[in-house]
Nucleic acid binder design. Structure first.
Lengths: 218, 218
DNA sequence: TGTACATCAGTGAACGCGCGTTCACTGATGTAC
DNA sequence: TGTACATCAGTGAACGCGCGTTCACTGATGTAC
């Protein structure tokens, strides 16, 4: 099966977990390259890592377990990415903008990963309810609400219902992320232009903070 | 292979095309039920129709041809659905609203079909460039631009860039359609509420036509 | 009206493939004595 | 310091499955004469 003629060296005692990491990395690569969960087969993973397929079983009970673990890792990374982008901002408006930029940049650079994270509908026929994925989506969305609320509280957004407007904002971000690639022959505005329009229209972001909104709570 | 013991009666001369329709219908059902293109296998189709798998070959050259044909049919039906919804409207604003309602209703009632139509990204690795699908997506989007432009021309929308705003509108519709099912435990506003917000924010739809905008072109 | 025959519509067995999973195993590494 | 042995990490052959595709075929239907 394996291309090498030499047998893989066993990991030292107590470091059997290293193979686990290699398996996850190979599965992530397969998703990244093919955009398909179905491409993550035990044999394909084994080929990449350079092991025999049954060697996976001591580390994962099934194919599905591996996919779920990868998705959870990807969500954690995506969430951290957005968090890091937000922390570099000078104003609340910039914080929201940077968070959204990071969101769209990830989707543009890793469309297949993005699609696996957000393009599946969990509760539908056939798809098992991956609780981790739902929690991950939720966490990302809550970063959006949080950032938008920060803008409202400091007068940078005139939104009167940040939760609802963050939803619309999320819809628009997701729609752009997914549809952008689906009409390659269309003359698209550039991402920053689109994002500014979305932030203005859906997030009611203002060019400068309105002092009358920046006071205490209503 | 087949569950029946009797052999399928041949279609009469000149009506061999009937089997073609049955094959397409079976493939559409498989997509509807599983939400997965991969579930459309020649053997699964053959089982549904009650024929032997090789009987498909005189009608379709390959599995991929069948999927493409189904997708083209679905796009035509979706496009017609939106067109019909628009035609029942009294005002341009209502025309846009009804078109969007039909869009979201289709996505809610047939999430798996919707996902096949809009949830794939054509130009990515592995996915062949289905020109029909791209044209279909484009046609649906152009219905949106057209309806929004109708609103602008008659003062029902204050949009200054209908093409760009129709894009944002589309993003938001698509985002809602796809994400609504992905967080089942979230307390969602109802669809009409979401749609009104999207129409107002992204489409700049007004509660009543503004006469000063309803004049001739700039 | 009867018959031979071409054509059409679909069959069933078979192929090679990749898959998940099982099983008994091998060979290196560390440890008890 | 030496040796027997347990354990760990991974192997390779085999299973049964569903798949796309090929091939020679069958049986009904219409048509030419």
């Amino acid at each position: 099966m394996r291309s090498q003629t030499t047998r893989r060296k066993n990991n030292p005692r107590g470091e059997g977990g290293r193979l686990r990491e290699e398996i996850l990395a190979a599965a992530a690569d397969l998703i990244e390259e093919t955009g398909s969960e179905e491409a993550v087969t035990l044999r394909a993973i084994a080929r990449r890592v350079g092991i025999a397929a049954p060697s996976i079983y001591p580390h994962f009970a099934s194919r599905e377990t591996i996919v779920d673990a990868v998705i959870n890792d990807e969500f954690a990374a995506f969430d951290a990415l957005i968090g890091a982008a937000r922390r570099g901002a000078a104003t609340p408006a910039d914080e929201l903008r940077r968070g959204c930029q990071a969101y769209l940049r990830f989707a543009a650079q890793h469309p297949n990963r993005y699609r696996i994270l957000f393009g599946r509908i969990g509760h539908l026929a056939g798809a098992p309810a991956n609780a981790g994925a739902r929690a991950g989506r939720r966490r990302v969305f809550e970063q959006l609400i949080d950032a938008l609320r920060g803008c409202v509280d400091t007068g940078w957004s005139s939104s009167e219902d940040p939760a609802a407007d963050a939803l619309t904002l999320w819809f628009a971000l997701h729609g752009y992320a997914m549809l952008r690639g689906s009409l390659p022959d269309f003359s698209w505005p550039d991402t920053d232009t689109v994002l500014e329009r979305i932030l203005t229209d859906c997030g009611h972001l203002l060019p400068s903070p309105r002092v009358d909104l920046a006071g205490g709570p209503t």
